[in-house]
Design a protein around this nucleic acid. Structure first.
Length: 582
DNA sequence: GCCG
DNA sequence: CAGTACG
DNA sequence: CGGCCGATACTG
């Protein structure tokens, strides 16, 4: 008890995120002080850094945003830290200390800032400094809050009563969901407990997939949400009833199945059509191949894209983007580290400056949610005062073409007339590559002139060496031998998916909500809107038929929906149902 | 499948 | 229109 | 029981 008595703590950049406000409550419950005013700054204090700003080398990242997010005057606070060098650790250490019952700072505990550079960042130390990256990241996710006996759970329950956002683990698993992400500030998870839920997670992932294939999208969704709920649940599940009580989206049906799995170790019939799922999965992992095509092909006994090519050559002429999905099949399943995202954004912004210096490019998607590995890059374009989407569309087109000229853009997945003009030859090259006859007079329908989105294949120059996290490096889905001949993938110089979106300046807030995601969060908040007689889209929040309530200010949209604002990094923690009280 |  | 894609 | 995201956006 009173572990933190007499100790002062400073949260940086602030303690507004749900995780950090939770931790600050833990500090106060243990007689510690949380500094809220520059007057209280103290050289003896322990500085707690939001983990979203610490990369896996334990360095500060995204310093610009970091400083911008300060609750107190950033100048004063930052110069104090540079000058006094208080101990700095990642915020999650709090839960670790409470678990082990003491505060452990590494011997060289105030080595924090590489003073010669305040721009590229400084080292943040924690107990695991010096361990290998793998070990460090394993331990990161294993940091635990309280076991459910003490202050921790009280506060957490009180919280969750008022908020649909649960202070729980964010731990997206990559087995069944290729779009999963590991989030920087994943914390408060007991790896040991959670790993025992793995069987359940896998089972419901499979069931979700099975029903998706069957065409029962809603039953599939039921399983998917339950799976997400279990992934985020920070304790070991001991009974179906416990899960039904505590976890959103676990109802009678899933509770029953949980109990069966706990009792017998597996679910009858679970492995039945596993082979079919694998086959369909192989096809649908290709861009532009959905569940209908995959099912159709599978039904006809086709095993590979080469088989499809023999049977339905027209498909690859008509749905030409599949050719690129096929060619970059393996590359596009590989995730990239944040530094590669930064580099791509850098290239895009540099070119954009020449195209239209007044236009802004802003990263969205899993990157802004703090994911350490991103499956693709989502870039939102907007321009102060510009509500003309035709103009924005033209800017994006010009930008994409300029990047194509420079050799960054490898392929386009949509065509404007101009893009078809320059890119058509590459399409024909792919068509020839799979030994198809090029239609002599291709009578294309009139391509749309001002597209609002561009999906691109993008390659950095080969000097850039991509890094991969250990976790994703293994068990990749690879192209079948028969299909390899079309591959353009290269793990040492991979092609990436980059998506361009644009929005009217007046719709910036609504667009940010849309493109920040994640998908489940969007669906959840849109349902909220409908329940309150409103409608939320990427264009804005509306009441009734067509009354615009708000589209520019995302915080105001939350407010109008009666929801507390939640930052991007916490939108992974979304959960549909309040945690039930016991 | 779950939820209201 | 259906199919696929985006968060 | 009926609804389950989007006045999505793009393609053929």
């Amino acid at each position: 008890m009173a572990l933190f008595q007499g100790k002062k703590f400073l949260f940086l950049p602030n303690c507004r995120s749900s995780t950090l406000s939770f931790l600050s409550q833990l500090i106060r419950s243990n007689d510690g002080t949380v500094i809220c005013d520059v007057e209280e700054l103290d050289k003896q204090m322990i500085t707690l850094i939001n983990k979203s700003f610490i990369d896996k080398d334990q360095k500060l990242t995204n310093k610009e945003l970091f400083l911008k997010e300060f609750e107190m005057d950033p100048d004063i606070v930052w110069s104090f830290i540079l000058h006094e060098r208080p101990a700095c650790v990642e915020a999650n250490c709090i839960s670790e200390w409470l678990k082990i019952g003491k505060i452990t700072l590494p011997p060289e505990f105030n080595v924090l800032i590489d003073e010669e550079d305040t721009t590229t960042g400084f080292h943040v130390i924690n107990e695991h400094a010096g361990q290998s990256n793998k070990e460090a990241s394993d331990r990161e996710s294993s940091m635990e809050s309280q076991s459910d006996t003490d202050i921790g759970s009280e506060t957490s329950h009180k919280d969750s009563h008022e908020s649909p956002f649960v202070q729980a683990a964010s731990r997206e698993e990559s087995l069944d969901n290729p779009i999963s992400e590991t989030v920087a500030n994943a914390d408060l998870v007991d790896e040991e407990n959670v790993s025992k839920n793995e069987t359940l997670i896998k089972a419901f992932g499979r069931l979700a997939r099975r029903y998706e294939i069957k065409g029962d999208q809603y039953r599939s969704k039921g399983y998917k949400l339950a799976k997400i709920g279990i992934e985020r649940y920070p304790h070991e599940i001991l009974s179906g009833e416990q899960a039904r009580r505590d976890i959103a989206s676990v109802g009678p049906g899933i509770a029953k199945k949980i109990q069966i799995i706990l009792d017998t170790g597996s679910l009858p019939g679970l492995d039945e059509s596993f082979d079919l799922e694998k086959k369909l999965n192989y096809f649908t992992q290709c861009h532009d191949v959905g569940i209908y095509s995959a099912k159709r092909w599978n039904l006809l006994g086709l095993q590979s894209f080469a088989d499809v090519l023999k049977k339905f050559p027209e498909v690859f002429i008509r749905d030409w983007p599949i050719l690129f999905g096929w060619s970059y099949y393996e590359d596009w399943l590989m995730k990239m580290c944040r530094d590669e995202c930064d580099e791509i954004l850098n290239v895009v912004r540099t070119t954009l400056k020449r195209v239209d210096p007044a236009c802004s490019a802003e990263l969205q998607g899993s990157y802004v949610r703090g994911a350490q590995e991103c499956g693709d890059l989502d870039i939102l374009f907007h321009k102060k005062g510009c509500d003309n989407t035709t103009e924005l569309g033209r800017i994006m087109e010009k930008l994409a073409l300029a990047l194509y000229d420079q050799g960054y853009v490898e392929c386009f997945l949509q065509l404007s007339p101009k893009i078809r003009q320059v890119f058509g030859s590459r399409i024909r090259e792919r068509v020839r590559k799979c030994k198809l006859k090029i239609p002599s007079q291709e009578e294309y329908p009139p391509a749309v002139a001002d597209l609002k989105k561009y999906f691109l294949g993008f390659k950095l120059k080969s000097e850039f060496k991509p890094r991969y996290l250990e976790t994703s490096a293994d068990k990749l889905i690879k192209l079948e031998t028969d299909d390899r001949f079309m591959s353009l993938s290269s793990s040492s110089h991979p092609c990436r998916r980059v998506d361009f979106f644009c929005c009217k300046y007046s719709e910036l807030g609504a667009a940010r909500i849309q493109w920040t995601g994640p998908k489940e969060f969007n669906r959840w908040i849109r349902i909220k809107a409908v329940q309150k007689g409103m409608k939320l889209t990427q264009h804005g929040l509306y009441r009734g038929e067509n009354i615009l309530l708000e589209s520019f200010d995302d915080k105001r949209i939350f407010e109008l929906l009666g929801e507390e604002y939640v930052g991007p990094e916490d939108r992974n923690r979304m959960i549909k149902k309040r945690q039930k009280q016991s």
